[in-house]
Structure formats: structure tokens, C-alpha cells
Simulated scan of single mutants.
Amino acid sequence: MSTVLAFDFGAARIGVAVGTTELGIPHPVETIAAIDNDTRFARIATLIAEWQPAQLVVGLPLAEDGGEQESSRLARKFAQRLEGRFQLPVALVDERYSSAEASQALNQTGLKGRKQKPALDQVAAMNILDSWLAGAG
């Protein structure tokens, strides 16, 4: 059984989710709200020490037509930094609709509008991890 940490990378926040390859069920972990890289990577280092993942997954935000955009480049750079700093394999997963799906799921629980903000990135990370687990299994 391997633990996997997934990240929904954003310029302002990074959503984090965890799951295992055996169970295939992602769970929210937290939202890292720090903007500076030192703080972000220090928190990620703590999460990696805590969860001991064998794999990292990063959402790749593509345009609707599947093309690359500025946020795609930033997500790829973040993935490369994760791999370089933590010496763990990093997979990229198409996350075109993860935030919209996360918002819709939160709407169904009664969490709407601005109240979604604290959980939205974590749920998006869960969707990213769910996609990766479905393809890896």
C-alpha cells in the first residue's frame, strides 16, 4: 500500500489531499495559503515527513482545448521543484475541471459562495488525486 499526496497548485493557495493506492479514496488535508516559496515548501516538507508518501501528484491546469497556459507552466515548475527537493516521483494530472467539480460538490453540501474558499482547494486536490488513482489502479 502506497500513500500519495496530491496538490492543487495555485498562485495564492495550494490544496493538499492524501490517499492510498490500496483504498483509492482521497481525503482532504489542508490548504497552504502562504504565497512565498520558502513557507510553502517548509509546510510541504512537514506534510511529507508526516504522511511518508511514495508518490506526489500535481494538477496540471490546461485550457479547455487541452493547450498549455501560464498556469500550466507554473504548475509544471512547482512539480519539478517538488521532485528536486524531495526526491519523490511526481505525476501531472489534467485538472481542467477540478475546481468547478469541487465547487459543485461543496454546493451540494450546502457550502456556497465565499464559505467554500477554505475547503475548495482541498476538494480540488481530492479530485486530482481521484483521477490519478483511477488511472493508476
Rank of each mutant, 00 (worst) to 15 (best):
L47M: 08
I48L: 11
I48N: 05
W51P: 13
Q52M: 07
P53D: 09
P53C: 03
A54N: 08
A54W: 11
Q55T: 14
Q55Y: 14
L56D: 08
V57Q: 08
V58M: 13
V58Y: 10
G59H: 08
G59A: 00
P61E: 02
L62D: 09
A63R: 07
E64T: 01
D65E: 00
G66C: 11
G67A: 05
G67C: 03
E68H: 10
E70T: 03
S71C: 03
S72L: 00
R73Q: 02
L74V: 04
L74Y: 08
L74G: 05
A75H: 08
R76C: 10
R76V: 11
F78A: 04
F78K: 12
A79N: 05
A79H: 07
Q80N: 13
R81F: 14
R81G: 08
L82E: 07
G84K: 11
G84F: 04
R85L: 15
R85K: 14
Q87A: 15
Q87F: 13
A91N: 14
V93H: 06
D94P: 09
E95V: 02
E95F: 12
R96H: 00
Y97H: 09
Y97P: 00
S99W: 01
S99C: 02
S99K: 04
E101S: 01
A105M: 09
N107Y: 07
Q108G: 12
G110S: 11
L111I: 13
L111D: 07
K112N: 04
K112H: 02
G113D: 00
G113L: 00
R114F: 13
R114W: 02
R114C: 09
K115W: 11
K117A: 02
L120C: 02
Q122K: 01
V123W: 00
V123Q: 03
A125P: 10
M126A: 13
D130N: 15
D130W: 15
D130R: 15
S131A: 15
W132G: 02
L133K: 10
L133V: 10
A134S: 13
A134M: 14
G135P: 14
A136L: 09
A136M: 15
G137P: 15
